[in-house]
Design a protein around this nucleic acid. Structure first.
Lengths: 338, 338
DNA sequence: AGAGTGTGACCAATCGTTTGCTCACCGACC
DNA sequence: GGTCGGTGAGCAAACGATTGGTCACACTCT
């Protein structure tokens, strides 16, 4: 197999009998260039014939711009991030940017490695899909002057951010359960170092308070974001002397774990225990009974964050705009029997 | 916000009072260089202090190698590809390669656009996760001498390939149903332009034949790869004068559609109709009843394909090796009542 | 006819690294 | 004392594209 080298400007110039710069100007439609119609036509024909595509590497070096964005996610198997990615790619593609996806698997060290590597690749900007509160990586990005947008979770004030109103989401979930008559409502909480978890929990507390329900600390347990951890946490809740009649989980994965735990205990959903999840992942609607959950406009997250990032890049300024979208309650069989 | 420029070799050289090339040799541990211990120590200290990282863009230009691989997939929301990607990233990361993910959404045009763009980005190699039989894009890759590996689906002979033995998988699925006493076994088939679909169907036919069951053409319907299309196809099968008592679907998505259609018809799974899917996606085990399916070592696909691709790149030769792994039957409630 | 003005294209530096060559210097050997 | 060899480091040319300057030429106007 012979390995081709794509044609270069210099070779093209030799074939056309002009200087490389002239071709470059034709390719880039440089308005400064005054080129005779005849020469231009000749060059354009040659371009067409050879299917010339400028070497992006060389161009990046000269322009100090790579036209590459990167998205950093903690878990590629989580469909949430797949959807955000699609939104990003959509917008980036339109504007001539490529997108690199980097998966950290939740490891802070792999995140650092990726950040370093992306820096030396000179990506034009970064979209971080899951940072913690006061995240040192975000601080580092700011120090380095690397353009970035946070999506879904935020780190602190001052960074461009796109996400949902998780406080409102937490309230909607809890109000829904209250409206069905529940009084002993548990919460499978996320980590207190993560903005979404904190906000959803605050929403839960606020909804209880406005309904005159006294919060009971034992009903709030930190349950992680995985099916497994959710299942364990729910198991403990069901062993309480006065178990809850409803549970609001920080995400759908934990909710699915709770789902399994409740059925394991021989209880019925929603008659004995009702469940509300968060995110509306594809699996949610396939459970039996299907999961009531909060839908967030995830694809939109991706689109908006890409737009904000590209705006920063082209304007050269960091714009600490925060975009907050509203979640929507999707009521299914896990709270209301059909 | 001040935008930093990362430090360059030239600046470093000025600070150390040596020539840039000397620093470059220290950074790259160039064996040719004889550097005094004293100078080396001074440079290394400076490197440490400034946290120097070579500009990958410039290096790529000079080396004519970008250390970037790309993976092209048709549907990022399909967990199959997420798992393959993780395997690729794992190996690539170890060897110092980055991975770009490009999502075509099933559009041949977007695939072509991506291929062009990746070519002009001078990626070192490509992994294609879903090609069709005799795919023109694959032909183009060969013509251009672009290193590539096909994964999961193949295009024809002559390309490096990693996948599973889909013929065997089709047989295993069908034999399993036969062994349970089924005689009227339907097949929700995939496209005849896709290698996996063709092989699985051939496996299905072979298993019927060896059991002395005469294939009935109406029981084989092309059903696509989506839940929706699977549901429709299964609906039609259930309207037949003599409906099937079992169905083997080309993938889990179609199987889930069939699942829904069967329940819609008021029939029981597996008592009235048994189902076997393919791929063992995470949702499969969460259905009620959970789905019997074929598990393929997907992560392994990713790892092996990345290794093969990197081997091609470093050796400079295209090695048309084909690696075929064995699928495994996972028996669950959709074929055998618990 | 000479100055001035456009026009069309080329020149050369630059982006940051890498790497084959060259070169100065020093000690040693004949 | 002159040559030789080894050591440590600098020089400069790439890689391919971009872009501000420059330049030759032709035409116009006074």
């Amino acid at each position: 197999m012979t390995s081709f080298r794509p044609i270069t400007l210099k070779e093209l110039a030799a074939r056309a009998g002009v200087h490389p710069s002239t071709i470059s100007r034709v390719v880039n439609r440089d308005p400064v260039l005054r080129v005779s119609a005849e020469t231009r036509a000749r060059i354009e024909a040659l371009l067409e014939e050879t299917d010339y595509r400028p070497d992006v590497v060389a161009r990046s070096l000269r322009l100090r711009q790579t036209f590459v964005l990167a998205m950093i996610i903690p878990d590629i198997t989580n469909p949430l991030f797949a959807d955000i990615f699609m939104g990003i790619e959509e917008v980036a593609g339109e504007r001539g940017y490529g997108v690199i996806l980097a998966n950290t698997g939740g490891s802070a060290e792999r995140e650092r490695t990726h950040l370093r590597s992306l820096q030396s690749r000179r990506v034009d900007g970064l979209i971080l899909a899951s940072v913690s509160l006061r995240d040192p990586s975000v601080r580092w990005l700011r120090e380095q002057g690397i353009k970035h947008v946070l999506v879904n979770r935020y780190s602190g004030p001052g960074d461009p951010f796109v996400g949902a109103d998780d406080f409102a989401g937490g309230m909607m979930a809890t109000r829904h359960l209250v409206s069905l008559g529940h009084r002993r409502i548990a919460h499978l909480a996320g980590s207190s170092g993560v903005s979404t978890a904190v906000q959803r929990r605050r929403g839960y507390m606020a909804a209880l308070r406005e309904s005159g329900i006294a919060p009971e600390p034992p009903l709030v347990v930190e349950a992680g974001y995985l099916e497994d951890t959710g299942r364990q946490a729910m198991g403990l809740l069901l062993e309480l002397p006065l178990p809850p009649t409803a549970v609001f989980a920080v995400n759908d994965m934990a909710a699915m774990g709770a789902h399994a735990a409740i059925l394991d205990h021989g209880l019925r959903i929603p008659e004995d225990v009702a469940i509300v999840g968060y995110n509306d992942v594809p699996l949610a609607s396939r459970l039996a009974p299907p999961l009531t959950t909060l839908r967030v406009p995830v694809r939109e997250f991706g689109r908006i964050s890409a737009e904000m990032l590209i705006e920063q890049i082209t304007s050269g300024r960091s714009i600490p705009r925060r975009v907050v979208l509203q979640p929507e309650l999707v009521i299914r069989g896990s709270t209301v029997a059909p």
